[in-house]
Design a protein around this nucleic acid. Structure first.
Length: 909
RNA sequence: GCCGACUUAGCUCAGUGGUAGAGCAUCCGCUUCACACGCGGGAGGUCACAAGUUCAAAUCUUGUAGUCGGUACCA
């Protein structure tokens, strides 16, 4: 069998996934071991409206690497997939479509027809994400796919709502909330993003104070009090002006009345500690219906709350006939004009102002007074904090800074605004009778029973999308409040690890912890991996507005899914990183390297089979064999350790260097002659079996990262079958994804073989170095002279054939001493050995002198540093003994080597 | 304002109380019978700056500067 010259991912990516899925490899039921320990991950459900971006690809890769790795280790593995209904986003998209196609608004067609349209839309476009997830190769169990608006998940939402209401944690209240005038809904604090506006203004408005004419300079003009504001239009809703009680400037005005300009109202001057005398004018206009602080002051002083805006941020009738119907920003201009006309505009200062924006549509959010549903989080918050304090759960990776950020946020947690003025989502299970009494119940029927009347209207609002996501870890496993025990819950909850971005630690992670503790009575997961953000190549955040996003699908097409996956995993240290196509390109090359190494093995595979016994037959093993077996087991051990601690970058480095450097650059080259021998022989078969076996084991290590390539190649290796599966999958159809993941066997570590091989590698490298520096043509084959101790002599002789081949030499002469002509290039090796290459007629003496001087000077620099350190009494006395001994040994080696090089140099001069 | 992270080779990034690492780029040489998506050999860094702790600091502490986050807020 001969492979194509280069790996083309297309075919592998289009065939294996279907087969894995059809064979049920992704479902936990594939595991035949009833006692198997469970490993479970729930996907952070992507928005049903969305398509994948690079952040998803990263996150999904990490989850799949862990899942495939654990599955191969024999765990009963569940990677649960699903999507989120994403209330606002989805409603906006369908609204836009409706407008474009039918020139209608949701109100035109009504709630029922509109939500039907959203469902239809969801059915049509909702599988964009799932197709992409298949493309990524994720080993998710499609039979357990969930949607946040599935029947059972919706029942869970209603049960949780009712319970929290009945226990008094959920309440309906009239509060200052964040209002998005474009989306026309309330937003929670977490959905509001602050943005600094550099060119903002601070307006100073003068309010005339009644009955103060006698204290003014002019007998007929009343005194004025100046207030500063960034939102002058809200003065139309002012119901007081506040000053600090200790502010002498205003002491005599407290209790006086202001004739509020542009309105017919009179408002009081009040005293409140909240006002800071040093800031602005020391007098603050109070608008209780449009500012959270003013609202609080209003409550303290029993002030009237005047709402002056409609839900689209135009002014309403309370703003007065002149302003009614004007947009808030137009009204602002007009208020300023009027004040100017009245001579009451003192000044306008430039002012850097921080404005809250709607996270989704970027509209400036308006704080206003509104009736909404809230959750008081204090009980659940304490449960979550207790879990962290007691068990350190969830364990964040990296722990710094996320654990602290999470804890601090919980400690300062405020009530959660959960109602949304939307139609797409879970409608709030609350009904009102004709006089406004509220009945919260799981179903309308129960509400009717409670109310004693059928004449009820359900609250039109829906719940925040994150309310249902908060239940995701257990609602997806069957918990819905009516049903509280299922096999899946018992087996897979708590889940093992959650992988997500830091932007939703508060929105999602913390809330899952809280609801899980409250409703299931246990943590939702042990560990939380917070991955970094994928930035563009200039280190900027990718965004639609900047149009600097990189589409994973394009990268898949260009470089293959496996190359993309291993690039992402290899970049993942928890820190943000800039995307570079060149990185994927180098891993595409890595994929091709794996392909070609396999190709070469298959070209010489007659008589070979994957057979673990070939690695255990120590009698027939060469130094190189022992070396690669040792290297493999160390790599496997370190790889498992890296994955246990979620060190994905480390894991990829280990694989890359083991496979490319150790296996391809050295092992294949070292055994090439034996492998490609023309005569078939038991020895050749053994060599071939050995290398194919190591290759097969390596493919297993690579599989979690590069599933398609490894599956493709694995099936081509001789004698691969389900006999290589982990025992938990012994009856399943043969696939590498169920093969036993190599643990790494410490008894196969061979320090002696590694040291010996290292000496050989060093020798070959030195000869190559001399060849390159002395410009020896590849076709010229010199002899290699070596002086070495008895043990090293034996090692070099044992590897004579390989040394001659890889160093391109004719003879290897090993002895106690060097006996070579003056016209030789020399170098020192480890263990006091020396190397010489006679170059009669080829040597350039000046070049060789330069070479030797260069080496001597390098050793000299190191020697000086060691000398200095070893002559430091403090060091010798206080440093660990082994450390001191190491340095002494190294010093001796340097002295020996320097002496040898100097001798060679003298001989040339 | 408060909290935090980062600053290492031209670029993107690892790393660690004890002789500075990778990939890419760069330089030199190779159609060596798996691979030019390759092979071989080089060059390149006072690990942001300053002080401190230590036998030893790029690594720990503090401060400074720059970059980027999170979060709060004074009208």
């Amino acid at each position: 069998m001969e492979l194509e010259k280069a790996y083309n991912p297309t075919e592998a990516e289009s065939t294996h996934y279907k087969k894995w899925e059809a064979n049920g490899c992704f479902a936990p039921e594939i595991n035949e071991n009833r006692e198997a320990e469970a490993f479970s991950i729930v996907i952070p459900p992507p928005n049903v409206t969305g398509s994948l971006h690079m952040g998803h690809a990263l996150q999904h890769t990490l989850m799949d690497v862990l899942t495939r790795w654990k599955r191969m280790q024999g765990y009963r593995t569940l990677f649960l997939v699903g999507v989120d209904h994403a209330g606002i986003s989805t409603q906006l998209m369908v609204t836009r479509q409706l407008k474009k196609e039918e020139h209608k608004t949701p109100q035109d067609i009504g709630r029922e027809a509109f939500t039907e349209k959203v469902w239809a839309w969801k059915k049509q476009y909702g599988d964009t994400i799932t197709k992409q997830i298949r493309r990524e190769g994720l080993s998710v169990d499609w039979s357990r796919e969930r949607f946040t608006m599935d029947e059972s998940l919706s029942i869970a939402v209603r049960n949780v709502f009712v319970t929290l209401y009945e226990e008094g944690w959920i309440y309906r209240g009239n509060r200052i909330i964040n209002w998005c005038p474009k989306d026309k809904t309330v937003l929670s604090d977490l959905e509001v993003k602050e943005e600094t506006k550099k060119d903002g203004k601070l307006y100073y408005l003068q309010y005339p104070v009644k009955d103060t004419a006698e204290t003014s300079a002019s007998a007929s003009v009343p005194r004025r009090i100046t207030v500063a504001t960034t939102r002058p239009e809200t003065m139309l809703g002012d119901t007081a002006v506040a000053v600090n009680p200790d502010d002498e400037r205003y002491a005599d005005l407290i209790g006086k009345t202001i004739e509020l300009p542009l309105t017919n109202r009179e408002i009081k001057i009040i005293a409140d500690d909240y006002v800071e005398s040093d800031f602005g004018t020391g007098a603050v206009k109070i608008t209780p219906a449009h500012d959270p602080n003013d609202y609080e002051i209003g409550l303290r002083h029993d002030l009237e709350q005047i709402n002056i805006m409609n839900n689209d941020a135009t002014m309403n009738e309370n703003a007065g006939a002149e302003f009614e119907g004007l947009d808030r920003f137009v009204a602002r201009e007009k208020v300023i004009e009027k004040f100017e006309e009245l001579g009451l505009l003192e000044k306008i200062d430039d002012y850097e102002v921080v404005l809250p924006h709607c996270e989704r549509c970027k509209t400036v959010v308006e704080p206003l007074l509104s009736d909404q549903w809230f959750v008081n989080m204090s009980e659940m918050r304490d449960l979550a904090l207790g879990l962290m304090k007691k068990d350190g759960v969830p364990h964040f990776s990296p722990q710094v800074p996320h654990e602290k950020v999470y804890t601090t946020w919980l400690e300062n947690l405020k009530d959660w605004t959960i109602s949304r003025q939307l139609w797409w989502g879970h409608q709030i299970p609350a009904w009102y009778d004709e006089v406004g009494n509220v009945f919260v119940a799981k179903t309308e029927k129960e509400a009717i029973a409670k109310a004693g009347t059928k004449n009820l209207t359900q609250d039109p609002d829906v719940l925040d999308t994150w309310f249902s996501s908060a239940l995701w870890s257990f609602s997806t496993l069957g918990w819905n409040g009516d049903v509280t025990e299922t096999e899946d819950l018992k087996t897979f909850h708590p889940t093992s690890v959650l992988v997500t971005g830091r932007d939703i630690i508060f929105l999602w992670v913390s809330r899952m912890v809280m609801t899980s503790l409250k409703f299931v009575g246990e943590k939702p997961f042990d560990d939380v991996i917070i991955h970094g953000t994928v930035l563009d190549k200039n280190g900027q955040r990718m965004s639609k507005t900047k149009n600097n996003g990189v589409d994973p699908l394009d990268v898949f097409d260009k470089f293959g899914v496996d190359a993309t996956r291993i690039t992402l995993a290899g970049s993942s240290t928890g820190a943000d990183f800039a995307w570079r196509d060149e990185k994927v390109e180098s891993f595409r090359n890595f994929a091709n390297k794996i392909w070609n190494a396999t190709r070469f093995c298959l070209m010489n595979s007659e008589g070979a089979k994957v057979d673990f016994a070939s690695l255990n037959n120590t009698e027939n093993l060469s130094i190189a064999d022992k070396w690669i077996i040792s290297r493999f087991n160390k790599t496997a051990t370190a790889l498992n350790k890296a994955l246990e601690t979620y060190q994905f970058h480390e894991a990829v480095q280990l694989l890359y260097h083991f496979f490319w450097d150790d296996f391809c650059d050295w092992y294949i080259e070292l055994v090439k002659d034996e492998m490609t021998a023309e005569e078939s022989s038991p020895k050749r078969d053994e060599t071939r079996s050995r290398i194919v076996t190591i290759l097969e084991q390596s493919l297993r290590l690579l599989h979690p990262f590069m599933p398609f390539l490894t599956e493709e190649l694995w099936h081509k290796l001789p004698a691969t079958s389900n006999a290589l599966h982990h025992s938990a999958y012994k009856n399943a159809d043969a696939t590498i994804m169920l093969a036993d993941f190599p643990k790494g066997d410490a008894s196969m570590f061979d320090e002696k073989a590694e040291a010996e091989m290292q000496a050989v590698i060093y020798l070959i490298t030195k000869v190559r170095n001399i060849r390159a520096e002395m410009s020896i043509k590849p076709s010229d084959k010199p002899a290699i002279h070596i002086a070495a101790s008895g043990h090293l002599q034996r090692v070099f002789r044992e590897n004579e054939a390989q040394i001659l081949k890889l160093a391109r030499a004719t003879d290897l002469l090993v002895g106690e001493k060097l006996d070579v002509p003056k016209a030789s290039a020399k170098a020192v090796l480890t263990g006091g050995a020396e190397l010489a290459i006679p170059l009669e007629g080829l040597i350039d003496f000046d070049k060789e002198i330069e070479r030797l001087e260069n080496q001597i000077s390098k050793l000299g620099v190191e020697g000086e540093r060691l000398e200095k350190q070893l002559s430091n009494q403090n060091f010798v006395e206080r440093a660990p003994v082994e450390k001191v001994q190491d340095l002494k040994d190294r010093m001796t080696e340097i002295e020996t080597q320097s002496a040898a090089l100097k001798q060679s140099l003298d001989a040339l001069k």
